[in-house]
Computed example of a mutant assay.
Amino acid sequence: MLKGFAITPPVIGRISIGRVVEKNGRRLPEKDDQFTITTQVQNREGWMLHPLNESLRRASTGKLRAIPVRFLFNDPDLNLRAEYSLFDRESGRPVCVGNGEMCRRAGDAGIEELPCPSPDGCAFGRTGNCKPYGRLNVTIGDEDELGSFIFRTTSYNSIRTLAARLHYFSAVSGNLLACLPLELRLRGKSTTQSYRSAIYYVDIGVRSGSTLEAAIAEARELDARRRTAGFDQAALDTAARAGFGNGAFEDSIEDGAAVVDEFYPAQPEGGSSTAVTDTMTERPSLKDRLEQRAALLGGAAA
């Protein structure tokens, strides 16, 4: 195995809740209110749709807001990896990755391990647009049981919710997370920062029409069948853990370039960067905020 080269789960497709569009010569993230499943191939219009995108959309009889999934690993932290991350916008190379305590930072002297005070308390992170960045691997269907679809996000809401759900489902199932029949769900909420506009984040739940008790019973049956067949889930988790730990950074330059394009857009002159797809709606202009305020005052007066 090549040292310094992270071995990550094989990826056969992507899951997103937005896309990157070109406006006035700049590539910017555009939010959406549904999932899109794509291949790993791009053309001039963007990422090419995966066949599962259309089949699941037909089954949902509307917008794709739930995807039936399973997870590769029983360990929640192998399915979802989240760190504070900073990328070089030009090369797509990871520059600094930390967990709030320690970080690995690429410099002229190589990879250094330094204290990580989180982006709010780090001068280096603030100047480079450091933010939480999560990667979730899931399996969809039975065509490739060890191939995964990856969902990338810089949303606090998505990362926090996904981490909690994964640990909860692992606990209540007796560490049978990889056998549970679950689904990704798109949820909406409004906050003061979004000015009452809906923002969307990703959650995990039991599949529609089922219950947690039924899902756990199915997980136990699947675990028993796998054990009988010789499937070693513990060894798979161990192999994945070793693969992740083999490199300083999980993302390659190729992956990083796509991440920068979608989640770390270049800042326009004299202004802040555009909001990320599933993190926040774009901040309204001063004119829009004044109009919203006037409308609220007018409604109160009526």
Rank of each mutant, 00 (worst) to 15 (best):
K23Q: 11
A248V: 02
A240S: 14
I111L: 13
A258Q: 12
I216G: 09
R65D: 09
L180D: 13
R26S: 13
N137V: 08
G128P: 01
I140D: 13
S91C: 03
Y200E: 03
F149W: 03
A217L: 10
F124Y: 14
L180S: 02
I15S: 08
A163K: 13
A164W: 15
D232W: 04
V95F: 11
A294G: 02
Y168G: 01
G125V: 10
L162T: 01
E45Y: 02
G141W: 10
R225N: 12
V138I: 07
A300K: 07
T154G: 12
T281S: 09
G230D: 04
A294F: 07
G110N: 13
V138Y: 04
V41G: 06
K287R: 15
G128V: 10
P117V: 00
A217M: 02
L78A: 06
I253N: 12
A59M: 12
A171I: 00
L222Y: 04
Q40L: 14
T211Y: 11
L177S: 02
T8S: 13
P68E: 11
S273T: 08
E45V: 01
A235Y: 04
A171H: 11
A275E: 15
V41T: 13
R81Q: 10
T39D: 09
P119Y: 14
D232N: 15
G4H: 03
L186G: 09
P10T: 06
E113Q: 08
T161C: 08
R26F: 12
I67F: 00
T39M: 12
D142I: 05
L286G: 00
R89M: 07
L166C: 00
F124W: 09
N79C: 05
E112Y: 01
G298A: 07
P265E: 15
L177C: 03
T274E: 15
V138M: 10
G256Y: 09
F71S: 01
S208T: 11
D142V: 08
G298T: 01
S118N: 13
C130D: 08
P181Y: 08
A215P: 09
T154H: 02
R81Y: 08
D120I: 02
A248L: 03
A235T: 07
S272K: 11
D261W: 04
V95D: 15
A248G: 00
E112K: 10
R14E: 14
R81G: 02
E183L: 00
G107P: 05
